[in-house]
């Protein structure tokens, strides 16, 4: 990542790269239902953002909820880009309100979905905000992979918080990180991926995304990732699977 010095502050010379893929899991394939995971990525002005969402299968409009969660998250990131001094907790509040507008007139509880957002600003800072199952990973330089999200202790598979589920603002996880000149990568995954990752091998997962996927020409990154997710090797896996990646140029 190249940086230039402007007004005494380091700035990213070029926007980060982003890509992602969401694939339907065997459970939805067998039942003829659509994929209820979504991802979005946008580079707008000084900010590049990725978001993922997993619609809650028991809700009738889960897919709409998940799609709206991703678009609302990107809109929230766009707003944050204009006022990066604002903390990520306020991004969560704005995102919640925006999501409710975007699913209306449907009832929020009929559209329940998780939501995770990462936004990187040219001003060398990154924010993460997440609600519900899923995982956010971050690595800078050769440091250990850092998990930005945590999972409530009581949860078993497929039990989650989310937009449209009774919760408080304190249920959101959010963090703001400075970005140095070293190369960095941030990754969001839904629980269809997170639950099957070996905790001691997260560095291998990141390395695979960097070398085997991000190393491809831009036009091939998402299609290569989608193809790989369809070959997911864990026996008996059922869920939809989504990965979104943002990394320094």
């Amino acid at each position: 990542m190249k940086s230039v010095i402007k007004n005494g502050r380091a700035k990213l010379a070029s926007a980060p790269i982003y890509f992602g893929a969401a694939v339907r899991g065997p459970m939805h394939k067998n039942s003829g239902k659509p994929c209820e995971d979504f991802w979005r990525g946008r580079s707008v002005g000084d900010t590049t953002a990725i978001s993922i969402s997993d619609g809650m299968g028991s809700k009738p409009f889960a897919a709409i909820g998940a799609r709206s969660a991703c678009t609302s998250a990107i809109r929230a990131a766009r707003l944050w880009a204009k006022a990066t001094d604002v903390g990520p907790d306020w991004v969560c509040r704005w995102l919640e309100a925006q999501w409710r507008f975007s699913v209306a007139p449907k009832q929020p509880q009929e559209c329940a979905a998780t939501c995770h957002l990462i936004a990187a600003h040219k001003n060398n800072c990154l924010i993460y905000a997440g609600l519900g199952d899923g995982m956010a990973l971050f690595q800078q330089g050769k440091k250990n992979v850092q998990c930005l999200s945590t999972r409530p202790f009581g949860n078993f598979a497929n039990e989650t918080l989310g937009l449209g589920v009774d919760h408080r603002m304190t249920d959101w996880y959010h963090v703001r990180l400075p970005l140095s000149k070293e190369p960095w990568i941030a990754v969001l995954v839904t629980d269809g991926i997170a639950d099957d990752l070996r905790p001691e091998k997260l560095d291998a997962f990141i390395k695979w995304l960097r070398s085997d996927i991000a190393g491809k020409p831009k036009a091939e990154q998402s299609t290569t990732l989608r193809r790989a997710l369809r070959e997911w090797p864990t026996p008996g896996h059922l869920d939809d699977k989504t990965v979104a990646v943002i990394l320094s140029h």
């Binding site: 598979a157 639950d195 099957d196 990752l197 070996r198 091998k201 997260l202 291998a204 997962f205 695979w208 085997d212 290569t224 193809r227 790989a228 070959e231 997911w232 090797p233 864990t234 026996p235 008996g236 896996h237």
Partner: peptide
């Protein structure tokens, strides 16, 4: 196939 082999390194090999 290449991806499947690579993914086995970081994924669990048992059903839930």
């Amino acid at each position: 196939m290449k991806n499947e082999i690579a993914m086995k390194e970081f994924t669990v090999d048992q059903a839930r």
